[in-house]
Nucleic acid binder design. Structure first.
Ligand SMILES: [Mg+2]
Length: 225
DNA sequence: GCGACAG
DNA sequence: ATCTTGTCGC
């Protein structure tokens, strides 16, 4: 299938972002989330595997996992991750029930305040949080690598856009930012409550591992025919 | 113009 | 993100 040129997709996204930004809202969660969905993708050849892990926040247990396999139809271009991974996530979340999305990537800690978590949160009208292993945009003060310490990520105009958070002793921080319909405080509290033995919040780490398992399994199927 | 740059 | 064993550091 031939799709529109990448430049056209970028222009279209930028127009959509302007529209979406008007609906963007930071606010405290109305109630504690019951179901949180964690999102991550992996790749092989020209395929993208997008994975979904549904998690009971209260019971701290995985409810179900699933994945969607598609052809890659946009390259990785910094600040345009939404075009690469967004469509699959939207497809996979259709007809699903959840109260909050936590996505591997940025929320508002993004040059256009439109990281993939914000983009999805507004499009799907759901609270969302972005959790990234690296910073994309903004500045923060270095902090000691002591679990629990955090530092504000500041945007171009001196505004708060997220946090660098140490989740494990002697490791680099993770970079968290609100996506949509959530406060900075809720963002920090919820992510902190999901930290286990590792740097990455446990369910996000698990969906990442799952995505690699799916990939390995699909690769074996190809090899066997 | 140069460099930085989520996944 | 991906290719991939050993190896360094905590
Ligand atoms: Mg990822």
């Amino acid at each position: 299938m031939i799709s529109k040129p990448n430049i056209y997709k970028i222009e279209k996204l930028r127009k959509e972002e302007e529209k979406l930004l008007k609906k963007f809202k930071i606010e405290k969660l109305k109630k504690e989330p019951e179901i949180i969905v964690f999102l991550d993708s992996s790749y092989f050849n020209d395929n993208i595997i997008s994975c979904f892990l549904f998690y009971s926040y209260k019971n701290r247990e995985v409810l179900k996992k699933k994945f969607i396999l598609s052809k890659i139809d946009f390259p990785y271009i910094p600040t345009y991750l939404s075009l690469r991974e967004g469509p699959n996530y939207i497809k996979g979340l259709k007809n699903e029930e959840y109260d909050l999305m936590i996505i591997d990537g940025q929320g508002i800690a993004h040059p256009r305040k439109m990281g993939i978590a914000t983009y999805l949160g507004i499009k799907l009208n759901k609270p969302s949080i972005g959790v990234a292993k690296n910073i994309l945009y903004g500045t923060y003060k270095q902090i000691n690598k002591e679990k629990g310490l955090f530092s504000e990520i500041i945007g171009e105009n001196g505004e708060l856009i997220g946090y660098a958070l140490i989740t494990k002793e002697k490791t680099n921080p993770i970079f968290i930012s609100p996506g949509n319909l959530i406060s900075f405080e809720d963002t920090l509290n919820i992510i902190n409550s999901l930290i286990g033995r590792h740097r990455i919040p446990e369910p996000l780490r698990e969906v990442h591992i799952y995505s690699r398992e799916v990939k390995r399994s699909l690769n074996e199927n190809i090899y066997n025919r």
